[in-house]
Design a protein around this nucleic acid. Sequence first.
DNA 1: CATGAATGAGCTTTCATTCAT
DNA 2: AATGAATGAAAGCTCATTCAT
Lengths: 190, 190, 190, 190
Amino acid sequence: MPLAAEGAGKRERLVMAARRMIHEQGVEKTTLADIAAVAEVPVGNVYYYFKTKDALVAAVLDAYQNSYRGISAELDRQPTPQARLKALVRVLTERRELLTARGCPVGSLSSELDKRDDELRGQGAIVLSTLIDLAEEQFRALGRDDARELGVALIAAYEGVVLLASTLREAGLISTEVARLERWIDTLAG
Amino acid sequence: MPLAAEGAGKRERLVMAARRMIHEQGVEKTTLADIAAVAEVPVGNVYYYFKTKDALVAAVLDAYQNSYRGISAELDRQPTPQARLKALVRVLTERRELLTARGCPVGSLSSELDKRDDELRGQGAIVLSTLIDLAEEQFRALGRDDARELGVALIAAYEGVVLLASTLREAGLISTEVARLERWIDTLAG
Amino acid sequence: MPLAAEGAGKRERLVMAARRMIHEQGVEKTTLADIAAVAEVPVGNVYYYFKTKDALVAAVLDAYQNSYRGISAELDRQPTPQARLKALVRVLTERRELLTARGCPVGSLSSELDKRDDELRGQGAIVLSTLIDLAEEQFRALGRDDARELGVALIAAYEGVVLLASTLREAGLISTEVARLERWIDTLAG
Amino acid sequence: MPLAAEGAGKRERLVMAARRMIHEQGVEKTTLADIAAVAEVPVGNVYYYFKTKDALVAAVLDAYQNSYRGISAELDRQPTPQARLKALVRVLTERRELLTARGCPVGSLSSELDKRDDELRGQGAIVLSTLIDLAEEQFRALGRDDARELGVALIAAYEGVVLLASTLREAGLISTEVARLERWIDTLAG
DNA sequence: CATGAATGAGCTTTCATTCAT
DNA sequence: AATGAATGAAAGCTCATTCAT
């Protein structure tokens, strides 16, 4: 019986469960009981791993950041900056059904946290910055002086269209916008 | 003491208060007591005007739609489609401090409602659709076959950059993106 | 415009509406708003006719008593005491569907009022006593010394079987018991 | 300090408290705060044991059914069906003061539940049926073909006279009716 | 007499957090 | 480390009653 491993497993399970439930229901509507149930961890035990609900939310943000670092590694296998940008944008299309159903996990979470007045306020930044940086790098590699601006524009287009698709319940909006973005990327000097 | 006006005034005050508090705190974190306090109406009295909290939220959505209809009228005073699009985009810059502080009122509200499973789910659509239609019309007036696609792209860019600006707390993101969008509009055939 | 008549009409309508709603939902679950709506009287206006909700309930009890006095008059058209008792019992079978659906209006109201600690406590007595007296008279006319006891027994059997029929949702219980009671009445000396 | 016993004890205490308060005040007038106070349990804690107030009411019904099963066992110690019927009827006289004060706990509860439109509607049946069955068995043991009818009649007489006694505040009605029923039982073939 | 509006006390229910073991 | 149970503050909502006109 790997004790420590079991503990780590529980912690991980809790973060995954929180990630899923918060994506589906939002932070406020998701109770610790919900999360504990999904993670199959007794409610009282959650507090051994996380001092407060907020700490668990913070852990979810960390988890997202790690995910995006993983994406970064994948992108590096692409030969050109354009290919990397298009690959970045294309991961969208793959998940478009989920995104249309419940919005962007990071975007909607950030949006919710932006309304708060506590330490969590604006903590979505640690994740979204990573994404923007990722795009910015590629634009810079393309020799653009406005790389940061374009990085912001790309991620903004992503977050914006997912919000629209989710609200209008039209997954097609995502496909169309992704195609548009890919064409735009192709027009960039390289 | 205007009789009817007082009643109508209260209803209006409640909607305005709800609008403000929901923008600042989100639907879930905003209590009826919060709203009632801001509107200077006794809590119990809220229910004379709105059967449930949800009904009040729905009224807020209606209020936004009416606001946007007002914008539509303003835009009509612009001479060309391009001018109208740029005017649309420019209202953003004016409010950028507020948007950076608390996000787009409609966007964040829609984002929150998208997580729900009740009648309010997706009700942000009635407002966002109005906005998209507004943009689409102008693109169509410019003779674009992809008017709808461009309308979606424009509003998505707007919602997206406000989300980023709000999360990163950088009002500058909005100014930069708006400038970029204006330049883009200028490049369109007219 | 018969002013007084209109007023009387409203009062009557309120009592009828209260009677119906209280039979259907019980005193506690029936709101003044419910009653006012059925009676088509503005809520605020109810208080012109009845000082409190309890006063309206008291008026309902009075109405029931008057109804039962009406029944008394009808019974007098029967030739013999037995015929009168059987007629009394037979009015049950006629309304058995309603009774099975919502219980005896007087019985269930009395039952509810018996739980109270205010002036309404036990006020069902004014109605139920009338009923018992009605039966008792007939038994006395039959020369029974135990007329009161039999009167109580008859009304108890009535109230009891309606309660059972209503709870078990078996209208048949009423028919069967009524037949049994009629046979019993026939066996009495006369 | 018995661990499991303490939890079970609380649940039981809550049911007993609910039983008592509901008998005294009715379901609608009895608040969870009332029940919690009597059971000496914090209000919030009630929801650890019962998901809703209705669930607690359902538990009270179950408790009554178990009580009546206990009575059934006691009756079995009587030698003849008549003796069992009379024993059944006699438990009434013993509690007549309480019954006169607040009505039959099961009867008045059933009466109140019959007015509802939810899952609790008619749930008094599970208890009253048990009682009827108990009587029916004895009548059948006496060789009566109309055992069911007589069982219903006996329980109806019981419920009815308790209602009358409670409303008229005459405990004597119960004694008299019980005596009458005992005499009637004696006349039955056996 | 009539009435829409107002009021506030009170109810059920939820939930993050804590605690005893 | 683990956990069922406990806690209490706060939420949304209802409603008899009152009031201004």
